[in-house]
Design a protein around this nucleic acid. Structure first.
Length: 444
RNA sequence: CGGGGCGUGGCGCAGCCUGGUAGCGCGCCUGCUUUGGGAGCAGGAGGUCACUGGUUCGAACCCAGUCGCCCCGACCA
């Protein structure tokens, strides 16, 4: 992609409404624009990141044996009345009427819709277990939206719902999602810590939040440092093996203190965690999983026949990841004073290609050749071909934060070499194009 | 919803107290010069001063109301 042709409205100064770092950087880097309070327009660069996160989340959901569907944003109030939540949910739910004066709502979550769907399509225990998810926009009319996309009113969420015959089987579904979440966040380049949580209005009796460490996070957290050193991705998981999955969950939940301010107990923390392993800081909630039994299946009639021919309500759980929130959360966790430092898996482009002397024949030729070579290798590159000063280009590249910066300049164009540097390192190296390509493909 | 603050070219701000031709920096356009960390000079474009009403010869400025946005708090993926 040529920078000169891209739609990338960056800002030199920070709009005054933006207070926290991720919001400032997202506005400056031309990722989003605010439309109205808590509601954002996603621009190409921001959308690329969100799509990558969604794809990665999707991949891990599928790997754990879930099936993707897509439920509507607009739901019927009747369904919510039937489940008994219409009145309970309160003003956070956006209620609307259609032209026939029927009560509708913009879904803040989807337990009702999916439980109803399930009730109408599955009738036998032989079709269980089932894990169904979608990635869809939600609306919650927050009292106070803030922190940019981290607490918007409209947000993109992945929500998965499990259906099982017995509480034990449901626990396995819960465990599968637990492990899948560990993998998902690790692949996104984040250290996520599972913490025991309150179940809140979703209901139920078993729940964990997944928190990533960020100094600007909303929640105060206390945990055992050794949780941060666990290597999740090297674990080979067989999701069909109940004992194996349960063991992984156990290894992350037992013997490790990890609490948000909701559940923090200072005496217990001091007693259970040796002083050298105590971590105290702040974090951002990026995922939340719940087991809630028959809370929705009973009122909505999601029943199946068991092996003895008895009709029993299914056991359910729900599992959420804030996809749009993650865009901001990753920036909170990955930035420096110059700008964003994207983890490669979610970077909107892998390479900032800078031609410091547009108009110089050798530079232009080498830059073109380099861009084409990168594209041919399937590497996403944003080629800054504008007639701007070198300094302006370097600053913007730092702000946008792609993993690599490749510079073509009169210093090295004649020799056909390129100066390459990682966003997070200070040292650059000057190498021939072929070698640069090899370094990039081997490293990522 | 309680408390605080703010609405003036795309962005950041001054002007308001003390009413009298709407200003600055950045960005944008044109030209020349420059060229490895947000270049210089010259010229230029761009604004119903959030909205409505009032006071006044005259309102960005004073008064009243409305709307919008941000921050702190209670609540949340």
């Amino acid at each position: 992609m040529r920078r000169s042709r891209y739609y990338l409205p960056t800002l030199r100064e920070t709009p005054k409404e933006a207070e926290i770092i991720s919001h400032r950087l997202m506005l400056r880097a031309g990722m989003v624009r605010q439309s109205t309070a808590g509601i954002y327009i996603w621009l190409p660069l921001g959308l690329r990141v969100m799509d990558k996160i969604a794809d990665l989340v999707r991949d891990e959901q599928n790997r754990a044996g879930s099936h993707e569907i897509l439920m509507p944003t607009i739901q019927s109030a009747d369904l919510w009345r039937k489940a008994g939540r219409y009145d309970d949910y309160g003003p956070e739910m956006l209620r609307i009427k259609d032209r026939q004066d029927r009560d509708l709502l913009y879904g803040p979550t989807n337990e009702e819709v999916i439980t109803d769907l399930f009730a109408n399509t599955v009738t036998s225990y032989r079709d269980l277990p089932q894990l169904l998810y979608h990635i869809q926009w939600k609306f919650r009319d927050e009292l106070r939206p803030r922190f940019g996309v981290m607490r918007g009113r409209e947000f993109l969420m992945k929500d998965n719902y499990s259906f099982d015959l017995t509480p034990e089987a449901s626990r396995h579904s819960y465990n599968k999602m637990f492990v899948s979440y560990l993998r998902t966040f690790a692949r996104l380049g984040l250290q996520a810590i599972p913490m025991e949580a309150e179940t809140g209005p979703i209901g139920g009796n078993l729940s964990h939040e997944f928190i990533i460490i960020a100094s600007t996070g909303e929640s105060a957290i206390w945990c055992d440092k050794s949780l941060l050193e666990r290597d999740v991705l090297s674990l080979a998981v067989n999701y069909d093996n109940e004992a194996e999955v349960a063991e992984i969950v156990r290894s992350f939940t037992e013997g490790y203190y990890a609490c948000t301010d909701e559940k923090h107990n200072p005496e217990l923390f001091a007693k259970e965690v040796p002083e050298t392993r105590r971590y105290q800081g702040r974090g951002i909630e990026v995922g939340h999983i719940f087991h809630f039994g028959t809370k929705y299946s009973e009122p909505l009639g999601a029943m199946v026949s068991d092996a003895n021919g008895n009709r029993v309500p299914v056991q359910m759980g729900s599992y959420g990841i804030g996809v749009s929130r993650l865009v901001g959360a990753i920036i909170e966790a990955c930035h420096d004073e110059k700008g964003i430092c994207w983890p490669a898996p979610v970077a909107p482009f892998q390479v900032s290609l800078i031609n410091v002397r547009v108009g110089n024949t050798a530079c232009d030729a080498l830059a073109e050749k380099t861009m084409q070579a990168l594209q041919a290798a399937g590497v996403e590159v944003l080629y800054d071909d504008r007639d701007e000063s070198a300094g302006a280009k370097f600053s913007e590249a730092d702000l946008l934060g792609f993993p690599w910066r490749w510079v073509v300049s009169p210093r090295n164009a004649d020799s056909g070499t390129i100066e390459i540097k990682r966003r997070t390192e200070d040292e650059a190296q000057v190498v021939p194009l072929e070698q640069a390509l090899a370094l990039l493909t081997n490293s990522s």
